[in-house]
Design a protein around this nucleic acid. Structure first.
Lengths: 250, 250
DNA sequence: ATAGAAGTTGACGCAGCGTCAAGGTCAAGC
DNA sequence: GCTTGACCTTGACGCTGCGTCAACTTCTAT
């Protein structure tokens, strides 16, 4: 402490940061040392300390170093910068909140004795199978709507819904046995029922979702096995049919 | 699509990611291609696709790639990993929440016509001057306690509180005029009053806070001016006295 | 004079890829 | 047989904000 100017360690301690940080700020031009001795040592005065304290304050608010530079150098209106930053912070909090919900859901399943992802995804086509998918792709609200829809169904309606899927799978199996092509009118008619069936619950079936689902039927052995119980090759037929349907209609 | 194995772009599209990501996962050993052709091309089969989908699912939950590897390779209990991750997520959300509060407070001040940081920090020693400090260092609850304390005071009590600070500053000024040393009994007695005064409002005055405050009295011209109105050098005397006091008593 | 504290400039590391750059491969059409 | 154009490869830098060596020089105190 030489009265009016301090060494790098002095201000670092005073401001509660490290010398490395100060050298970093010097490097990016955020806070230059007041004076650099012939020996290369950095020295800072009160003005620098005040600026440093403001920098650290804004940093603790979560602003980026470039933003801080703009604010302190008067290139940016402080209030505007803070408002923009606030918005970003709120989005971040919302995003994390969604992740927390997803993790909690997954944990509940795991602890409820159900098995993770793989094994729970295809038991009787339970509606909850797409929870993660839907949650991620169309946001939680959309999923909640779907969930309410399912919860609102009567036992009979649920059975009918599941049965219809079974019928569709059976008809696909029959079509395959008859040697029908994926783009034939007959198979496309069944595919239309498949689409309608999906639409009843999701109410938002995009092209990507539909074809992706088709691919999964072939790629994932659990799906393949379920469909191929109507004859080997049924899953492939369904996938191809869904692709054709998507290309033509979606 | 050669039936059972796909090119890098094929799975990338199917799973909704990019080829760059897949090569990255290959590089860090998270997901190796099923087969690598003589030409160096990567090929993936259904198993790889399923694994990739699980990876992406966990990634969307916010897990790190190393954590995902541990979970998928069975080295880590899934539930335990998710619980740990959940905790971390909740801390993150809390942290962001605190930042949001700080930013809002700062914005309110800015828009209320008060000026940022610098100019608002020293008008009559308004209690709110330490808001940022206190908020950051001792959490919001501590600050709220302090704020409630101040709000609970009567107008008379507030005036007395401010007056006491003025008296202390005056006495420091007199001590300096008398040529007393910072570590003299007289000056230390005044310093003790300064400490007690601070303690009344903050109720948590750490050594670092006390000495830091002393440094600020000298470093920040606004403080310096306020104290040096009792004679030049008063601020320096106070700082030194506070350091001595802190070393001896805190 | 010499030790120890403090200072300096590089430069790598981290997380998770995006994004060129520079160049090989492959199916298709002329 | 040659040219496109689409797709593939392996580097390697960039981003954020410093932490953390490493290898040296300088200051301070005994």
């Amino acid at each position: 402490m030489t009265g009016t100017h301090w060494s790098i360690q002095d201000i670092a301690r005073t401001a509660g940061t490290t010398s490395r940080t100060l050298r970093h700020y010097g490097q990016i031009g955020l806070l230059e040392p007041t004076r650099v001795g012939a020996n290369g040592y950095r020295y800072y005065d009160e003005h620098a300390l005040v600026r440093l304290q403001r920098i650290l304050l804004l940093r603790d608010l979560g602003l980026s170093l470039p933003s801080i530079a703009e604010v302190l150098d008067g290139e940016q209106d402080s209030a505007a910068a803070l408002r923009a930053h606030l918005e970003w912070l709120e989005q971040e909090r919302a995003r994390i909140g969604r992740q927390i919900e997803s993790v909690r859901t997954t944990l509940r399943k795991l602890e409820g004795g159900e098995q993770l992802m793989a094994d729970e995804m295809f038991d009787g086509f339970d509606h909850t199978q797409y929870e993660q998918e839907v949650t991620e792709r169309w946001s939680k609200e959309a999923y909640d709507r779907g969930n309410r829809w399912w919860s609102a169904l009567s036992e009979q309606e649920r059975k009918a819904f599941v049965q219809e899927q079974a019928d569709i799978a059976r008809d696909f199996g029959a079509a395959r046995a008859a040697g029908l092509a994926a783009d034939s009118d007959e198979v496309q008619a069944i595919t239309a029922r498949q689409y309608a069936w999906l639409e009843r619950s999701s109410e938002q079936v995009s092209k990507a979702y539909f074809t992706g689902l088709g691919d999964m039927y072939v790629a994932d052995p659990r799906f393949t096995a379920n469909y191929d119980k109507h004859g080997e090759g049924t899953a492939v037929l369904i996938r191809d049919a869904m692709h054709v349907y998507a290309d033509r209609n979606l």
